[in-house]
Simulated scan of single mutants.
Amino acid sequence: MPAATPQAVRRQIAQGKLDPVYLIVGDDDAEMARLAADLSAVVEDELRAFNLERMYAGEKATSPAAIVESARTLPMMGERRIVVVLRAERLLKPKRRGKEEEAGDVEPVPGGGDTDLLDAYVKRPEPLTTLVFVASDVDRSRRLYKSIQKHATIVECWGLKGSSKDRVDLRQVARAAEQLVRQAVADAGQQIDPAAARLVAERAGTDIATLRGDVERLLLFAAGKPKIDLEDAQEVVSVETTQDDWAVTSAIQRGDRAEALRQLALALDAGTVSYMVLGQLGYFVRERLPGIDARRVPAAVEALFRTDLDLKTSGGDPRVLLERLVVELCRR
């Protein structure tokens, strides 16, 4: 079945026409949680004790057999039963065994049993039940996923990235992030300076959780102001970063490779996420470098794309990849 958007599923909810099985997958935890809650809200409050069940994959009580048994239970005094399976990546992408085990083998499904029962259920679901899997990722080569892909509705919530496997276009990500910032601020009844929206967006890189968190803090910080300016954004961004947010880019701007690498090490050792650093470097390349030396921009953009792709495809140690990028950006 073709993939559905969260908006399309919400239209189904409004029309009372739910599909029997959904897979909600992605890295946008906030949107995934909201959609699962919207599906759960189909069950009337007074009947939730009977017709709504939330299960956590990986727990002893949540075996494939237990999930199927819950899904096959008919609704009581209501029209539909909702079963939500959280952390479903433990079923749909179980960890592989270590090297000491047979190559290609996988660990048994947490909670006992195997996924054959779920595979059979997906192919012939209970019409009065909606079974919802919520997963951070899936193994697309497994039989259960292929059955879900054919018979169920898949809702992808990959935040700013658009997909789990597509090459990330940093310019497109930045535009999407800025749009999200502006929309969130508008929904709060405020306005935001374009430079402020751009800073918050660039700081997050491709991390939707970081972006949402920064936007929430920004709205709290600037509550009551009709328009949020760049200084407001800088105050919010500085909360979660190191002593000098732009120490790495400042050193790159000077062409000081040794200092840039030292500041990068300090940032990573302090717990800064690699994509946070990449977002700042992207902001530097697009917003500052053209005014410093436009001739360096094409090579810098290419280096950014390559590093982002390597980070997303596990093409090397993140620290080494970022160090290589910093060295390349320092070249004059």
Rank of each mutant, 00 (worst) to 15 (best):
A57H: 02
I67L: 05
T129H: 10
V273I: 07
R124A: 14
L170W: 07
V21A: 00
A33M: 00
D137R: 15
E259V: 11
L160H: 08
A135R: 12
T130S: 15
A303Q: 10
L47T: 01
M77A: 14
A300Q: 07
E202I: 06
R324I: 02
D45L: 05
A177E: 03
Y56C: 04
F221A: 00
R332F: 05
A300S: 11
G112W: 06
A61E: 15
Q7P: 06
L47F: 11
Y145P: 10
G224F: 02
R212V: 05
M77S: 13
R124V: 11
A251E: 04
R288Q: 12
K123Q: 12
P75L: 08
T272R: 14
A135P: 06
E287Y: 10
L131N: 08
L281R: 04
K227A: 10
T129Y: 10
A197D: 02
E259H: 10
L23T: 03
V285T: 10
D256P: 01
L47V: 01
Y145I: 02
E79Y: 03
A294R: 11
A196P: 14
I67E: 06
K225T: 04
F305D: 13
G112M: 07
V9T: 06
A30E: 04
V25S: 05
G315L: 07
R254W: 08
K161R: 15
S163H: 07
F221Y: 15
D256A: 12
D28N: 15
E302F: 03
C330L: 06
G316K: 10
L220C: 03
G189R: 00
G26V: 06
L281W: 08
S141E: 11
K150H: 13
P108F: 05
D193A: 09
R81A: 01
Y56M: 10
T210Q: 12
R262Y: 09
E69V: 01
E259S: 12
A209N: 12
R254P: 13
L23Q: 05
G78C: 01
I154P: 00
